[in-house]
C-alpha cells in the first residue's frame, strides 16, 4: 500500500495537449475513481501512473518515490485492463502466476500465492482452464487475480466492467469493492459510468477536457457540484438547468419564475439547477406540461415543459396523467443549485 501523488502532470502528443496540469493526492489505501466523458484523458492519466505512457510534464509519486522515468515493472503496481488482457495460451494458474515467475518467485511461493488469490476470487476450480474456456465474469476475476497475486502497492483498473452485461457489472462492482475493503490496497479506477463511480469510490475525480473539474466524496459531488459540468455529469437522470436572472421574486427565466433561497446578488445571470428527484408534485406548484411519461414501477420519470424549458422529473409515485396534460411541480428549496451563467461556477 502506498499513497499516489500527481503534481502538475501534463501530457502532450506533439502540439496537442491532452492533460493540462493534473494535481491529485490519493491517500494510502484509498479507492479513487477517475470519471469523465470519453476523451477526457482519464485513461491516459491512469496509463501514465502505470508507466505505459510517458509523462510530458510534472511528477507522479508512488509511495513518496518519483516514478516518472521508471518502467511499469519497477513501479510496484498491478493493472486490470478493459479487455482483461489474459494471455490466451496460458492457463488461469499460469496467467496468475506469470508475473511472480518473471520476478524470480519460487515455485512453491507462486503456487501458494495463486491458490490464495484463487481462493479469494472463487477461481480454485478454474485454475487449469484457458481464458477461452471462461465466461466474461470469470475472465474478469482472473484479471483481478493476476493483479492481487503480486501484492502490489497500487491497483489500477481501466474500465474493467465495460465489457460485461448490466447484471454481471453490478455483481463485479460489489466484488471489486469487497476486494478493496479486504486488501486495503490503494486503488485508482477509471470509468465513464458515473453510477460505478458513485457506488465504489471513496473519492471521485471528475475530469473533462484534460482537466480535473472536481475532487470529492461521491455524495459531496452529488450535493455540492462545483460547476455546471460536474452538476450535469453526476446523477442520472441529469440535473435540470434553466438560465435566468436573479431577482427579488426568484430566478426569472423564459416563461417561468423559479423560487430561490440563494443569496446571489440581484441581477446576476445564473443557471438554476434542480435534480429530477428534487421535484415533487404539489397542487400549488408551477404548472408543467407533460411531453413524455415513463413509468418504471418504483418511480415515474416525466419529461415536461416548464415555461420555455424542457425538464425531467422523477417522482416516487405513479402518475395517472398523459402527455399533453398539465401537472404542478415544486422544487425542493433545499436542493436548488445556482451557477454563474458566464463561468459555470457554483454560486453559494
Amino acid at each position: 500500500m502506498a499513497p499516489v501523488t500527481l503534481k502538475s502532470v501534463t501530457k502532450s502528443y506533439g502540439a496537442t495537449s491532452v492533460l493540462h496540469g493534473i494535481d491529485i493526492d490519493i491517500a494510502d489505501g484509498e479507492f479513487v475513481v477517475l470519471v469523465g466523458p470519453s476523451g477526457c484523458g482519464k485513461s491516459t492519466l491512469l496509463r501514465m501512473i502505470a508507466g505505459l505512457e510517458t509523462i510530458t510534464g510534472g511528477a507522479i509519486e508512488i509511495g513518496g518515490r518519483v516514478v516518472n522515468d521508471l518502467e511499469p515493472k519497477d513501479r510496484d503496481i498491478a493493472m486490470v485492463f478493459q479487455n482483461y488482457a489474459l494471455y490466451p495460451h496460458m492457463t488461469v494458474a499460469t496467467n496468475m502466476g506469470f508475473s511472480l515467475e518473471h520476478r524470480g518467485g519460487s515455485k512453491a511461493e507462486i503456487a501458494e500465492r495463486v491458490q490464495w488469490a484463487a481462493g479469494i476470487l472463487g477461481l480454485t476450480h478454474l485454475l487449469d482452464r484457458y481464458p477461452r474456456q471462461l465466461s466474461g465474469g470469470q475472465r474478469q476475476r482472473v484479471a483481478m487475480g493476476r493483479a492481487i497475486v503480486r501484492n502490489p502497492q497500487v491497483f489500477l483498473f481501466d474500465e474493467p466492467l465495460s465489457n460485461l452485461d448490466a447484471k454481471l457489472r453490478v455483481v463485479m462492482r460489489g466484488e471489486i469493492k469487497g476486494l478493496h475493503q479486504r486488501l486495503g490496497v490503494t486503488t485508482v479506477y477509471v470509468t465513464h459510468d458515473q453510477v460505478e463511480a458513485m457506488t465504489m469510490a471513496d473519492r471521485i475525480v471528475v475530469m473533462n477536457g484534460g482537466k480535473v473539474e472536481q475532487v470529492g466524496a461521491p455524495l459531496d459531488l452529488y450535493d455540492r457540484p462545483a460547476n455546471l459540468f460536474v452538476a450535469g455529469f453526476i446523477g442520472s437522470p441529469a440535473m435540470n438547468f434553466i438560465e435566468g436572472i436573479v431577482t427579488n421574486e426568484g430566478l426569472v427565466a423564459l416563461g417561468v419564475t423559479l423560487p430561490l433561497t440563494n443569496s446571489a446578488p440581484l441581477g446576476t445571470k445564473a443557471t438554476y439547477g434542480i435534480r429530477p428527484e428534487n421535484l415533487t408534485l404539489a397542487a400549488d406548484g408551477l404548472p408543467a406540461k407533460i411531453t413524455l411519461i415513463e413509468p418504471m414501477g418504483s418511480e415515474t420519470q416525466v419529461t415536461m415543459t416548464l415555461g420555455d424549458h424542457t425538464i425531467t422529473g422523477v417522482f416516487r409515485e405513479r402518475i395517472a396523467a398523459r402527455p399533453g396534460e398539465t401537472i404542478h411541480i415544486r422544487p425542493d428549496l433545499n436542493a436548488i443549485h445556482l451557477f454563474d451563467a458566464s463561468t459555470g461556477l457554483r454560486i453559494e
Binding site: 505505459l52 515493472k73 494471455y87 495460451h89 508475473s99
Partner: peptide, 27 residues
Amino acid sequence: LPNELEEAARVDGLGRFKIFWTIALPL
C-alpha cells in the same frame, strides 16, 4: 495482436525480447 497483451506483460515485468518470446511468438 492486441496491444493490451503487451502492456499487461510490461506491467508483469517483461522486457521487449521476453514479450516477443513468451507472449507474441507463442500466439
